[in-house]
Design a protein around this nucleic acid. Sequence first.
DNA 1: CCAAAAGTGTTCTGCGTACACCCATGC
DNA 2: GCATGGGTGTACGCAGAACACTTTTGG
Lengths: 228, 228
Amino acid sequence: MPHTYEFPRPALTVDCVVFGFDGAGLQVLLIKRGIEPFLGTWALPGGFVRMEENLEEAARRELEEETSLRDVFLEQLYTFGDPGRDPRGRVVSVAWFALVHPEQHPAKGDTDASEAAWFHISDLPDLAFDHDHILTTALERLRGKIRYQPVGFELLPKRFTLTQLQALYEAILGRPIDKRNFRKKLLAFDFLIPLDEFTGGAHRPARLHRFDRRKYDTLVKKGFLFEL
Amino acid sequence: MPHTYEFPRPALTVDCVVFGFDGAGLQVLLIKRGIEPFLGTWALPGGFVRMEENLEEAARRELEEETSLRDVFLEQLYTFGDPGRDPRGRVVSVAWFALVHPEQHPAKGDTDASEAAWFHISDLPDLAFDHDHILTTALERLRGKIRYQPVGFELLPKRFTLTQLQALYEAILGRPIDKRNFRKKLLAFDFLIPLDEFTGGAHRPARLHRFDRRKYDTLVKKGFLFEL
DNA sequence: CCAAAAGTGTTCTGCGTACACCCATGC
DNA sequence: GCATGGGTGTACGCAGAACACTTTTGG
């Protein structure tokens, strides 16, 4: 074994910040820890990386084990490695950033071992480790990202109304948006497909739309830059 | 020791992608490896993280040890951890992204142990490990970042001409920019301070400017968004 | 006086923004 | 028929883009 191998090694974990949207506000999926340290405290889903899996596989595995979520939008966020961030010793965590459609939201009792629950970002409990810091970083990333990448669609049902889409942008950006301008701009890009389906409910039905990722990707290749 | 500690641990390293600009093109600082594996191959400066230092400290320490660079602009880039990226076994690397002013460029022979050299990004040698992949990721980040953050000034001398600044933007974005529009736009923001100093040389002297970070930060706080 | 780089203004077009009323449905 | 949310068009102002000539210096 070469010299370099004799360095003591930090432990390596992954943690996932899972965002959802309930029509009114942005939510985060947390689990209640079943082991020490921080037993009983809410925390980001995550755990130790295994030797044979890559980092994204580790994040997806932990996410499924702890929240039953699969096939979500997942992107690496940042790696947190300050000594002292874990009372057990040196633990470095590669944090991930996930977006889930409402159809994917796990039902209550869907997770076996640990308890999982959605929290509105304006009403969060105390979190284990430095998870509040990780969460803040993820939020900043989401707010920045939504303005120039079409990530909002990852948080909505596959078929959605323009009002839902607008509410999502308003929730994430934290400011009101003019309805007519919003619609005009988004429909001018032709990656939003109006469907011949409508919502039911107590009032005038709203037309459903879907996001056409293929058309979007085509536009991007032509040098198009999405911006809101 | 709790159960979690019994997991085998990957080794943890940091690697730095150091960008420079020589007036014509973008450059990267590489070191020639003095040890196996990949002995004699060019590689990103970097090395193992020590147990008592955080990740940024590790990156700065390795950078100084291997290239004599200090006090550079440094930002975390991405963490690379595929099994098999290092022939010695499982090694996860937290990659960093650095920008250095020409005044800071290390002179030849400035580095003791290892040989360091600048390479134009259009003329790179074969690299060790997955460092070509890391470098590509860093380049994408730089190209994206320069459009909405004033990182270009980190690559120029403290006092620079507008022509230099334009050449930098053209080199990074890979397209020509209209001189009058470029100047008009940048000078409209008042964070570019014209000095009463000029370049010498064979032709008409050019006025030097400096970037006023304080004014820039003030504007950002007011919700201003830089964009080019 | 010539070569080389610095510096400077105007016009046009398109996009962001502001803004108010009618429509369809369930109850 | 009324309450509720869905859906639509226009006018104005500003900022980006296109574009060519004069100035200053050294050799």
